[in-house]
Amino acid sequence: MNIFRFAGDMTHLMSILILLLKIYATKSCAVGISLKTQELYALVFLTRYLDQFTDYVSLYNSVMKVVFIASSLAIVWCMRRHPLVRKSYDKDLDTFRHQYVLLACFVLALLLHEIFTFQEVFWAFSIYLEAVAILPQLVLLQRSGNVDNLTGQYVLFLGAYRGLYIINWIYRYFTEDHFTRWIACVSGLVQTALYADFFYYYYLSWKTNTKLKLPA
């Protein structure tokens, strides 16, 4: 494992923990956090790590899989079940139609996968879903029109994770003999482009000192 991938995993973990700790500490998610995005991420981890008991890669991988599943489920649990956090969630702003995204990702996984097995189709599904899982969050930010520190940091760390993973792939492409993983790399590029778009508007709003407004 190279340093870029490790740093990518750590920023990914940081983004989730920041969100979880802040929701828990403030007992509120009234800061523009999309429950739909969080549920999609929990589903991403659950469907990707079906290989937890069948394919052993390393202790690091096995432990991180458990941590990612547990922390993402904890966020969803807080937002759905915690009496105070649940009250602070404004579902009228969280309007993204995630059903269509789920269906599209599943159909794409049925068509485009490495091997046609249950695990592999769901692995591909999780890769496609992760690429677009941030969309409800971006739509929510656009509708609520403000980005506070928590949400800013959260998206910042997620973006760093994506960027580091791309550097990791470039590094692996040049240092490994048979590094071909088109599904993960192309989906990863799409996902990073979504963040790049967000950061562009984030930067503009910061530079002009105006409220963040994302185009419709």
């Binding site: 290989d51 890669v57 899989k65 990791n168 993960a184």
Partner: peptide
Amino acid sequence: QDQPHSHDEL
């Protein structure tokens, strides 16, 4: 040797 279906990343 790299196996295409071995997913070693998270």
